[in-house]
């Protein structure tokens, strides 16, 4: 069995850190840029996220999830924490206008993993309102209250659609209750 980069980091292999940043640096940067109102804030967030990743590397279990999903999970938690602490505002609330991020044409495509593709496919199976609310929440970073206002919908209805949508996603992805396993553990 091939040892994952995170497992090598957990074992103290410093050389794996540079490899990790090459593979996933762009992913974490993209998630932070999406959630933070400006580049400076995103840079702070990225450093916090990676600190969390180094500290949590030993918890990674390839039988439970893919590396990209695990990293995105840690990143989301840290970004949500920052938002809660009031150190950050959602990108959608920002008034700061920045030029579009440069994209290197010769950069290697990032492997986001099969789980991401499956989750994207499963999203298409949801009811339109569930799909719309989850996209507004996860992709655009809107709070449920903001979504309710935007869609002229009762807050409770938004919450119900979001929760139902997640449960349906779980079902579509074949994750039985109590034994969640996106990574294929049987």
């Amino acid at each position: 069995m091939t040892t994952s980069i995170l497992q090598r980091i957990a074992a103290g292999d410093n050389a794996a850190v540079a490899e990790f940043l090459t593979h996933y640096g762009g992913v974490v940067w993209a998630l932070a840029r999406r959630a933070c109102p400006n580049r400076a804030d995103a840079e702070d967030a990225v450093q916090e996220i990676f600190l969390q990743v180094w500290r949590g590397a030993a918890q990674y279990d390839p039988a439970v999830s893919s590396e990209p999903t695990f990293i995105a999970m840690l990143a989301r938690r840290k970004l949500i924490d920052r938002f809660r602490r009031g150190k950050n505002k959602l990108a959608a609330q920002s008034l700061e206008v920045e030029p579009p991020a440069p994209v290197l044409s010769d950069s290697d495509p990032v492997e986001l993993g099969e789980e991401a593709a499956r989750a994207r496919e499963a999203l298409e199976q949801l009811r339109p309102e569930e799909k719309q609310i989850l996209i507004l929440s996860i992709e655009q970073g809107l709070t449920h209250s903001q979504i309710a206002e935007k869609l002229q919908m009762a807050l409770g209805t938004v919450k119900s659609h979001a929760r139902r949508g997640l449960v349906r996603l779980r079902d579509h992805l074949g994750v039985p209750q109590g034994t969640y396993q996106m990574g294929g553990r049987s």
């Binding site: 992913v27 840029r33 999903t69 994209v103 990032v110 499956r118 989750a119």
Partner: peptide, 13 residues
């Protein structure tokens, strides 16, 4: 987390 990855638009900066 997987869904947020799935909603990222590549190529990434």
């Amino acid at each position: 987390a997987a869904l947020e990855l799935g909603l990222l638009v590549e190529p990434l900066e």
